[in-house]
Design a protein around this nucleic acid. Structure first.
Lengths: 231, 231
DNA sequence: GCAAAAGTGTTTCCGATACACCCATGA
DNA sequence: TCATGGGTGTATCGGAAACACTTTTGC
């Protein structure tokens, strides 16, 4: 008999079109479910929970994410399993585990997922053992539960390696300027790109096309609006 | 209470320097531990087993591989978790599960690892529930237990994508010719490479250096012997 | 007319590819 | 002397990178 608790954890990146930042969704966990809200003891984490007995892992990731944040229908991609035997046995996590898990001392293996969304398209709402949900700049992530800081760091590397037009097509309004698209790449990759080279590259891949509309009401030359090609 | 069986499965590639083939290590499982050897019912699989309660996943991969094949000290790299709820509930696997698992009907999530070795450096020996171990050409893999065919296929893709000098440095004798190295790449990638271009590329990366020795006893111009640079 | 971002081409560099002949050895 | 694999260089192509000025608008 060697059955083990298995969880999924979701690193949800948010592209903030206003602040022009890449953020990560974190939940603030109720540590003690019976404490008053204003005398709360809390802890940050990324959304995650145990998977159910007969549940597919990918499905578990979706369900868990929804149960804690009400986010729905995200494309979640598995990127790595984390399973150090004591990854949930640090002092900082003890109280929460005792209040929310039937076997708080037992190890948990977790399978981590990533996704990225346009922040303004989604409105996460805290639910279940999350008492708050928020977006945090990736340079300002606080101490998280368990080994979640490590998971987030590896997810950032994964995202930067895997970025492509399929990813970015979900992160802009339907009609967008090439400068917006470039800015998005710059934010994810955390580096400046050359405007002319970027445009050449995008156009040569043929993934976007002109809409024949232009920006309006900007106090500079209005930009052409583009859209992603279907498929 | 939602604890789940978690296993590791190891896809061990072998580079066969004689036949010049890429192979995969498979075990022949005892299906019924009490049957006579010559009336055996068997089934092929890649080496894998449940992980233990307090065991690190990477450590489990090493232990399980050793327990079934006596292979030791391989560098195993995690590449993906597989967790379809019915991945161990096909008819073909039933008998083995009933004989070797205390809860044969229960789902198992597995975390898959890859490694690659020089076949002639390792001598796998069947052990535990393996009654035979063998190397199979990757084009000739039979039906395997569970979803192991899928796991092997994904491992091949992973290997081809990740091939580099660190990988290949373990697969040749300490002193080798550039033709041997090229052949190794050709076998892993399953495509012919241009001799001059290959040499230029290898030399420009500076990962190998001359030993100032030459092949002996070959009935053609003897080749220079090279070695990998330390570090 | 000024500030602000949009838009646009050319040159350079580098790595990838294609390609064919002479060399050293054992038999 | 012949069969075998070893060893070598150059030209071409294509993508990546560097780089600066003109245009259109709102104010």
């Amino acid at each position: 008999m060697s059955k083990i608790n298995v969880s999924v954890d979701c690193v949800i990146f948010g592209f903030d079109d206003i602040e022009k930042k890449l953020k990560v969704l974190s939940i603030e966990k109720k540590v003690d479910p019976f404490s008053k809200k204003n005398k709360k003891r809390t802890q940050f984490a990324i959304p995650g929970d145990l998977i159910e007995l007969e549940e597919d892992i990918d499905a578990a990731a979706s369900r868990v994410l929804f149960s804690l944040t009400k986010l729905n229908k995200l494309y979640l991609k598995q990127f790595k399993a984390f399973g150090h035997p004591r990854r949930v046995q640090q002092e900082k996590d003890k109280e929460w585990l005792e209040n929310f898990r039937s076997n708080p001392d037992e190890r948990v293996i977790t399978i981590a997922y990533v996704s990225i969304v346009r922040m303004e398209d989604y409105n996460p709402e805290a639910s279940y053992f999350a008492q708050d949900v928020k977006w945090t700049n990736i340079e300002e992530i606080p101490e998280l539960a368990f080994d979640h800081n490590q998971i987030v760091n590896e997810a950032v590397d994964f995202l930067r390696k895997e970025i492509n037009h399929e990813v970015t097509s979900e992160l802009l309004p339907r009609k967008f300027t090439l400068s917006q698209l470039q800015e998005l790449y710059e934010i994810i990759l955390n580096e400046k790109l050359d405007k002319r080279n970027f445009r050449k590259q995008i156009m040569s891949k043929g993934v976007v096309e002109k809409t024949n509309e232009k920006q309006k009401g900007v106090s500079h030359k209005p930009a052409e609006l583009y859209k992603f090609n279907q498929q």
